[in-house]
């Protein structure tokens, strides 16, 4: 499985390098007025490495029996993918809800996702609120910087100041 992955990834990289040569570098570098020699050198290095990777993948596939194939990457990635999706939603919500509310929601959902049942929701809620508040206070009050603002931040600023 892994070596099939290798050849597919290598093939994808070769295609990317070709697109880079004939489309991206002319449109995203040369057309913008930039010097392209170094970009071509780097792309050629990546292209040659990808070709080597591709053929090594094929050779290795022939060399090894399926029994020798790597098992290390056979891990359950369901939780990490859910967390990645949650992080993406959190970032999108941050602009609309502000840092505090979006982070509290993110923490509750992500901690619940990573916890095994039975989940202690009151504890989870308190932890999420306290940690979000700690980060908010650390940044805005101690480090004097700003975090994306929403309804909770406005309320909190009214209380603090």
């Amino acid at each position: 499985m892994k070596y099939r992955n290798d050849t597919i990834i290598a093939f994808g990289l070769i295609v990317f390098c070709l697109i880079n040569y004939f489309y991206l570098i002319p449109s995203q570098v040369i057309k913008q007025g930039s010097q392209s020699t170094y970009v071509y050198i780097v792309n050629t290095f990546l292209f040659l490495s990808s070709i080597g990777y591709f053929f090594q993948g094929i050779l290795q596939k022939k060399f090894l029996t399926s029994g020798n194939q790597e098992n290390k990457i056979n891990k359950d990635s369901k939780k990490s993918i859910i967390i990645i999706i949650l992080v993406a939603i959190w970032i999108l919500l941050m602009d609309y809800l502000g840092f505090l509310l979006s982070t509290i929601v993110f923490l509750i959902v992500s901690i619940a996702t990573l916890s095994n049942p039975p989940r202690n929701y009151p504890k989870l809620l308190i932890l999420s609120i306290l940690f979000s508040l700690f980060i908010y206070i650390l940044f805005t009050v101690i480090l004097k910087t700003i975090l994306p603002e929403g309804i909770l931040e406005v309320l909190l600023q009214d209380i603090i100041y």
Binding site: L13, V29, Q32, Q35, V39, N43, F45, L46, S49
Partner: peptide, 23 residues
């Protein structure tokens, strides 16, 4: 080598250090 190539390519993104044009 592929990872190194990708790292070098990612570092190109942004304004050209000599001509200040977009890449």
């Amino acid at each position: 080598l592929v990872a190194a190539g990708l790292g070098l390519l990612f570092s190109i993104v942004g304004l050209d250090m000599l001509t200040a044009t977009r890449r």
